[in-house]
């Protein structure tokens, strides 16, 4: 995979994007390039601007400066649903399933952007519309089998246990046939076994479904365990980038997470 990076087009390229909320700069001049089939992570302390960055990619925020390219296409300023239909899918930090809809229906909503039925076609039940409905149903069921929830297809989604809800959220995102999957803290609130299972699941997503994955994560074991590339954000700015090993030893990163290094602190005392 690494050898043809130079020849391939990046899946996502963020070019000096800046997002401000009033006087607060949430994300500043941030660059990021993700190549196909990579698992990239964005880490950083709370409030570093990770989720803001996600929202910029998925269209909920429009960055004031810079441009985002998805497979060579500028997507800055597009609506979230347009970006989704181009092939960017995301999950959310807190689980947001559609209450009142069954597990299967939740996944079927995910297929929405790759369907073309109009209400008129649905009213008249045109043959193409009917075929499309069946294809949607079959696809949703397939995805449920992939995440091992097919048994519970007719349950209300909100009645599932926590771990299953997380997986269902990912399946719903997958249903839109994305090329890039954005996962916002996929292991939040999980115990070590569940975390391990989720890591394997993310690897499987990349390997079996040819996905490129960008994730925000706080659990360092997950980040270091599965990422090909790690980017560290602090106060909206990129402070480090590289493989997990490189980032782990970067003094700037250590400073961001632990505060100023000991010797500097010490020298500061001496200076006083």
């Amino acid at each position: 995979m690494t050898d043809n990076i130079g020849t391939q087009q990046p899946v996502l390229q963020a070019d000096r994007i800046t997002k401000r909320f009033g006087g607060l700069m949430a994300v500043g001049e941030f660059d990021l390039t993700i190549m196909p089939q990579q698992i990239a992570s964005v880490i950083g302390p709370n409030g570093a601007g990770k989720t803001t960055f996600f929202n910029c990619i998925s269209g909920f925020y429009v960055p004031e400066e810079g441009e985002i390219w998805f497979r060579g296409h500028p997507i800055r300023g597009l609506r979230p649903d347009q970006i989704t239909s181009l092939g960017v899918a995301r999950t959310f930090q807190n689980i947001h399933l559609f209450a009142g809809m069954t597990v299967l229906e939740n996944v079927m909503v995910g297929v929405h952007s790759s369907m073309m039925a109009t209400p008129m076609a649905a009213l008249l039940r045109l043959p193409l519309n009917h075929q499309e409905e069946e294809a949607t149903l079959a696809k949703a069921y397939d995805l449920l089998e992939f995440i091992e929830l097919a048994e519970h297809g007719d349950l209300l989604a909100t009645n599932l246990p926590y771990g299953s809800q997380r997986r269902l959220e990912i399946a719903r995102a997958l249903a839109s046939e994305p090329a890039l999957l954005l996962l916002d803290e996929p292991t939040a609130g999980m115990n070590p076994q569940e975390t391990e299972a989720t890591m394997n699941f993310i690897r499987r997503l990349r390997d079996e479904r040819d996905l490129t994955i960008l994730l925000i994560e706080h659990d360092m074991s997950v980040v270091m365990g599965i990422s090909d590339q790690v980017t560290v954000l602090d106060y909206g700015r990129k402070i480090s980038e590289g493989t997990p090993q490189e980032v782990q030893h970067d003094p700037l990163v250590i400073e961001a997470y632990l505060g100023a290094p000991a010797d500097e602190l010490a020298s500061g005392f001496h200076a006083d």
Binding site: F60, R79, P80, T84, H96, M101, V109, G110, A173, S176
Partner: peptide
């Protein structure tokens, strides 16, 4: 159920 999430699932 949730407008924001629906939009991020591709609903116009």
């Amino acid at each position: 159920s949730d407008e924001t999430i629906a939009q991020s699932m591709g609903v116009n």
